[in-house]
């Protein structure tokens, strides 16, 4: 699978097409077992709902969005996506250990920007992604990947609009990356 020999200083990743085939099979397996696709942003939503519910139960109940996800018989953290997202974390850790990529906390960034800039950009990016994922009924894994794979119209729309926007605006944020 080695593309060429001049890749010694590069972190060793698996062949992207192999990764893609595995990921595609995983999507099939997930749907085969559970009847629905993978997801990621749902877990953070559960965390938000839980936090608001614990800190300010009154406002949680009165909020028309949060109250949708509160149920009396179990905590909002006790959902499928939360466990799945914990799995994502541990799976990443497992792979990181196997391939020797786990390090002390550090910030990966373009040499042209400071760590602070990178962290602020990451925070803003996260906020936007969080807001957008709620409108989009899912993020790049739940909507764009699993949605498109199950031929959902919405999934394909999210995929096209998400990557389309990325390409449209990438030039303006060039400095962040290269």
């Amino acid at each position: 699978m080695e593309k060429n020999t001049v890749t010694n200083n590069r972190p060793h990743y698996i062949n992207p097409y192999l990764g893609g085939v595995l990921l595609g099979l995983l999507v099939i397996l997930t749907v085969y077992i559970t009847g629905r696709g993978l997801g990621a942003s749902g877990a953070v939503k559960s965390a938000v709902v839980t936090t608001v519910d614990v800190v300010a139960p009154k406002s949680a109940e009165s909020n028309p969005y949060i109250s949708k996800f509160i149920s009396d018989d179990h905590s909002p953290m006790y959902t499928w996506l939360v466990f799945e997202s914990m799995g994502i974390f541990f799976g990443g850790l497992l792979s990181g250990i196997l391939f020797g990529r786990v390090k002390k906390p550090w910030v990966e960034k373009s040499p042209k920007i400071t760590s602070k800039t990178r962290l602020i950009a990451a925070l803003i990016g996260g906020i936007l992604f969080g807001i957008g994922s709620q409108f989009g009924r899912g993020c790049s894994s739940g909507a764009a990947l699993a949605g498109s794979a199950t031929f959902s119209l919405g999934g394909v729309i999210v995929m096209l609009a998400l990557f389309g926007t990325g390409y449209a605006i990438a030039w303006f944020f060039k400095k962040l990356w290269i």
Binding site: G37, G39, A143
Partner: peptide
């Protein structure tokens, strides 16, 4: 009217 029980479609998503 009695109807045959519909198979429940799993709900979910992100």
């Amino acid at each position: 009217v009695r109807r045959k029980k519909k198979q429940k479609v799993a709900a979910g998503g992100c």
